[in-house]
């Protein structure tokens, strides 16, 4: 028992000797990591929002953007096979399929109710190889062959949705920049508080021959470690939140991906080292600036 106490005292002495500025007490291991964890959580949400907006934009542009609807008037319903043959023969058409009449009724039931006698147009869905293609030649060829046939390209809606997605992405990146700015400010304030509470110890070390690099390095290592730890906690908290959001967004993304596999794992993994680096660099600058007042 006495040996254990002695070993504990020696271990404490060694830990303190390695920290002559007493930074483990001056820079609390709760407040700064807690603030950085909150900011890392916000950064993770912003990053995920940016990635999600990017993915939706891609999907809308490559999926919905390529979707074109062709309508045949009820009197031309018998010419579905002709329309399919014409469309499939066109080089710009990647894929074309008729919409099942039962599915049409199903889709219209919320608006039209049970009205099976109502004549409905026959509808085909097709995708173009390239969203930039002008659908007008297709429209002309189709209406020449089948009078009354109409082509509805969704490009304008896609453009609007893509612009919205880009705006969401921009806002997310702005939030990220704001979070980084706040993180720098929080670390700078914490560093100044540490400098104020350890002023005498710093002056003692300075007078005993410590270099500015040595003193700034001790602060930077401690703060970098606290920031990285806080960011790790924030990223860990973000994982279930992002998985839940990813699950909610899955239908918009086609519903084919599992929430866990859709998370921005690389971004989450980079949060702790980046936060640590921000903390380290901010502390270095703050301490070196403060030390300039000493000769």
């Amino acid at each position: 028992m006495a040996d254990d106490r002695n070993q504990g005292a020696v271990a404490r002495r060694i830990r303190r000797a390695r920290d002559p500025l007493g930074l483990k007490r001056a820079l609390s291991d709760r407040l700064l990591p807690g603030l950085v964890a909150a900011m890392a959580l916000l950064a993770a949400l912003a990053l995920a929002g940016s990635r999600g907006a990017e993915a939706l934009k891609e999907r809308w542009q490559q999926g919905a953007a390529a979707a074109v609807t062709v309508q045949l008037p009820p009197e031309q319903a018998g010419r579905m096979e002709d329309a399919m043959a014409l469309l499939r023969a066109r080089p710009e058409v990647a894929w074309a399929e008729p919409v099942n009449p039962e599915r049409m009724h199903e889709l219209l039931r919320p608006w039209l109710g049970e009205v099976p006698a109502l004549p409905l147009p026959s509808v085909l869905e097709l995708r173009l190889h390239n969203t930039a293609l002008d659908p007008a030649p297709l429209q002309r060829a189709l209406s020449d062959a089948i009078p009354g046939a109409e082509v509805e390209a969704h490009g304008i809606w896609v453009a609007r949705l893509a612009a919205l997605a880009r705006s969401v992405q921009g806002v997310a990146l702005a939030v990220l920049a704001l979070v980084i700015g706040v993180a720098v400010a929080v670390v700078a304030v914490a560093t100044r508080a540490g400098l104020a509470s350890r002023r005498q110890a710093i002056e003692i070390l300075h007078d005993l021959g410590a270099t500015q690099s040595d003193i700034a390095g001790r602060f930077a290592r401690r703060i970098g470690l606290l920031a990285a730890g806080g960011a790790l906690a924030g990223a860990a908290i973000a994982v279930p939140a992002l998985a839940a959001l990813s699950g909610l967004a899955a239908p918009l993304a086609g519903g084919m991906v599992q929430p866990w596999s859709a998370l921005p794992w690389l971004d989450l993994a980079l949060l702790p080292p980046v936060a640590g680096l921000i903390g380290w660099a901010t502390a270095q600058l703050s301490v070196r600036r403060w030390l300039r007042r000493l000769p």
Binding site: R13, R16, A17, L205, L208
Partner: peptide, 27 residues
């Protein structure tokens, strides 16, 4: 340069050993 300060200026959280060892560690 060795300095004996009027108010000692020892680091209160370091043991006697570590206060004396401080200049050597800094070197």
């Amino acid at each position: 340069i060795g300095v004996v300060f009027q108010d000692f200026r020892l680091l209160p959280y370091l043991s006697a050993f570590d206060n004396v060892a401080l200049p050597l560690r800094l070197a």
